[in-house]
Nucleic acid binder design. Structure first.
Lengths: 231, 231
DNA sequence: ATCTTAATTTCGGCA
DNA sequence: TGCCGAAGTTAAGAT
């Protein structure tokens, strides 16, 4: 990885065109050739960037560029798409280079997959008397997050979201419509479970006879943690 | 802005929990206190980060940490949410600091502007036998996106939107009313062009005798690229 | 201020 | 490899 602190202006042409006026910025060039241009504010998104795989070639500046004070023009080109990023270098204040090696990578915990795992193991949070049929129950229009049977011989389709929104209700509605055509499963009712359910989604769901359940992640994980302490 | 090349491990707790094993990485600390941790691969998204506003405080390592070789623990905390990022520092290989000042910011050629440019150059996508009169044809109530003449001596006003909605049709209707009062231009008919036209807008437009055209951005751009190769 | 929707989305999964 | 959906989505525009 190479890091440059430099005065530069930038031109990008690809899916859109964009321009960065001259300013002092950080330019990061990763081992795969990708380039990130950061300012001293904003979030983690760079002002400009080029995704790998890409190559950087240094070109001599045109007369026009020289007149403006540009010493080098870096052409960053994507191999697949025709995206091109031109970095017009005015002055390089500092440059460093380090070999970071391959990163072991991020270990995540607490995403929807984890919620699903926790809920499937503790179905009473989604309703009483439920027995798991299976997770990721596959249908022609996509997988149902959790399918369970209730004590009355009916089936329950559970749609799980971190944040419950209208589109999640729509999704569950489509599943229910399909599943209810299956005589082996029908009647199938729906449960919309999320850590947070938006009022509109709740209204729509209940209007369609879909039960809403708000999940407490800490509570779900509570048993998980208690188990963890045994080790 | 401060840049560190360091051996570190990272723990994040917030909307989810995440952990980064020990490795050599780049840590960027911006002026607003925000922190980005990058490896030498992946795209512009950092492995871990903390959004502004946030504060960084250095804590002495616990006994447990010392035993592992941690020399410092950086606590990066969000002011608003309760997100916390712990950076366990093993060794700092290099650190630099630069004042970048305020960035003038990115100038984008919006998609709509680009669409207009592409369509004006390839008017056959908006209808047969059209000849460009001009883009941004100015009237008393605002600029018409594209004005063209057809083979029958009539004029065509094209209103361009990324997504075609009712208000776009209303806008075009007002232009048409005005333009048709000009004997040099009349008769003027309207074309409503967008990448996606909502059913309501389509109904309203056709009810008023306005033609609807759905644009394929890739198709428009495809020819653009082919032309580009000529240079 | 809140909500809706696009993004040079990125990223991961699975068919 | 391509499609589909989630993301600590983020970010910009509209209501």
């Amino acid at each position: 990885m190479r890091i440059f602190i430099m005065d530069c202006s930038v031109d990008y042409t690809g899916r859109l065109s964009a321009h960065l006026p001259r300013a002092k910025r950080l330019l990061m060039q990763k081992n795969d050739g990708s380039v990130l241009i950061h300012s001293d504010s904003g979030s983690f998104k760079p002002l400009n960037w080029m995704n790998p795989p890409c190559t950087v070639t240094v070109e001599p500046p045109s007369e026009f560029h020289v007149a403006l004070g540009v010493t080098e023009v870096w052409r960053v080109a994507q191999s697949k798409t025709s995206d091109i990023l031109f970095v017009n270098v005015f002055e390089i204040h500092e440059s460093i280079e380090h070999d970071l090696g391959v990163d072991p990578g991020l270990i995540k915990d607490g995403v929807e997959a984890h919620l699903q795992e926790l809920l499937a193991a503790q179905l009473h949070f989604a309703g009483e008397g439920l027995t798991l049929i299976r997770r990721e129950y596959f249908t022609a229009i996509g997988p149902v997050d959790i399918l369970a049977s209730d004590v009355r011989g009916g089936t329950v389709a559970i749609e799980l979201k971190r944040r419950g929104d209208i589109d999640g209700v729509e999704q569950l509605t489509r599943y229910l419509e399909l599943l209810n055509r299956d005589p082996l499963l029908a009647p199938v009712r729906g449960v919309f479970a999320a850590q947070e359910i938006k009022p509109q989604a709740k209204t729509l769901a209940e209007d369609r006879g879909i039960e809403c359940v708000t999940l407490d992640y800490d509570e779900l994980r509570g048993l998980d943690l208690a188990e963890g302490r045994l080790f």
